[in-house]
Design a protein around this nucleic acid. Structure first.
Lengths: 217, 217
DNA sequence: ATAAAACTTTAGCCTTGTCTAAAAATATTT
DNA sequence: AAATATTTTTAGACAAGGCTAAAGTTTTAT
């Protein structure tokens, strides 16, 4: 049985090392989970004892296959619930995160899989992140950072890397949603800002914003 | 902020004293929640400190208005989730309890109320129990125990008092569902058993079964 | 009206998960 | 290659919630 707290650590390790396959540092986990390094050390020892993680003192932690699967299930649940909240309960994409953070810990395989079917087996959540299947696998997202697109070219907004309230509200304010076509008009080397054209207007986006936008082309 | 554990105690007190208005004994709570009397004493002290309960040493505990509302919200969530599981995710009524027991603790008023709307504002859960509204109120169920029905009379199965797996599986096996018409044919004083006629057959039900069946007439 | 039984509370201990402060190990500079 | 800085671990404390055993209170039976 894996506890709520253990699930949160598994998810953090999974997301910091690409799907848990790369060793992750104690401090990185502490930062992600908003806890202290000493708490992280305690917990990863416990995960290692349970054969959910590989841990070498001072050298970081990675997930075992068992741990990777458990983490993928948590991510799967989180993203399916986000789809449910947006599609069925009329939440907007900036309201779903905190609730999904709770719902991801509900334990019932039947629930997850029935929910998946009920939603029509979606492949991506409302922020464009891929939803792992029952085996914990998903196709890699093949979108590219808007910073890597040559001026003059266009693409479709496929993924926002940052799901914070503040960022999503910024996108709402500027009438930008997943699936929108975006054309890159100009790149300004001085501050790495971009001039883009959206469905509603031309606008300048800062480096901080651009870093979080990924397009499929 | 009320914790998961506190919510479970509030719910128990709410359900043991009719909607929390009657004082409930320590032992009754311990039995209901499957814990020890000493743990209950600790917790009701805490609830009293938080102004969620009225507690007099050795005299039992009842809910304050604040506590009653908090408890009604937990019950509301539990029953709405049960409807969701049965109506939308194809769970059968004997599979919903454990999952609803987890889902009832998810904190988001928006979630509960949107779910309520999504389900079409149901008034009863899959076992016939009433669903409290946003203010924590519900109409009293006006069904009567099948033991109080005179032989020869019929009614519609409106409520099953026991939601245990074993009992619901018994009903499934005998093809009995909420909404079914049931006619009482005979009462046997020796063991308080009943002969009834259902949509599929005549059968004898024991006192233990009869005590849990309520009909609307 | 007591004695016995049943119930409730208290005291002290345990586990989980978190924290701070100090010690140990590793990385980075000079 | 030493000295310094950073990161990680250890040691010890704490809060929440639960338990057992013992003591105190109320109820029931004689």
């Amino acid at each position: 049985m894996v506890s709520l707290s253990e699930e949160n650590y598994l998810k953090a390790i999974y997301q910091l090392g690409q799907q848990g396959s790369v060793a992750v540092s104690t401090n990185a986990i502490a930062k992600k989970i908003e806890s202290k390094a000493s708490s992280v050390t305690d917990m990863i020892k416990k995960l290692a004892e349970k054969k959910l993680a590989n841990y070498v003192k001072y050298k970081g932690v990675s997930l075992t296959e068992k741990g990777r699967l458990a983490a993928a299930l948590v991510v799967r649940k989180h993203r399916l619930w986000e789809v449910f909240l947006v599609e069925k309960l009329n939440f907007s994409w900036d309201e779903v995160h905190d609730v999904a953070e709770q719902l991801e810990h509900i334990k019932s395989l039947k629930l997850v899989n029935q929910l998946d079917d009920f939603l029509g087996n979606p492949t991506h959540d409302p922020h464009g992140d891929p939803i792992p299947d029952r085996e914990g696998n998903y196709l890699p997202v093949k979108s590219v950072s808007i910073l890597d697109i040559n001026p003059g070219k266009a693409g479709v907004l496929a993924l926002v890397k940052n799901s914070s309230d503040a960022f999503l509200k910024y996108l709402n304010k500027n009438n930008l949603s997943l699936g929108d076509s975006i054309k890159v008009l100009d790149f300004e080397p001085f501050d790495n800002s971009l001039t883009i054209e959206t469905k509603s207007k031309k606008m300048i986006i800062s480096k901080e914003v651009a870093q979080n936008l990924y397009l499929s082309i």
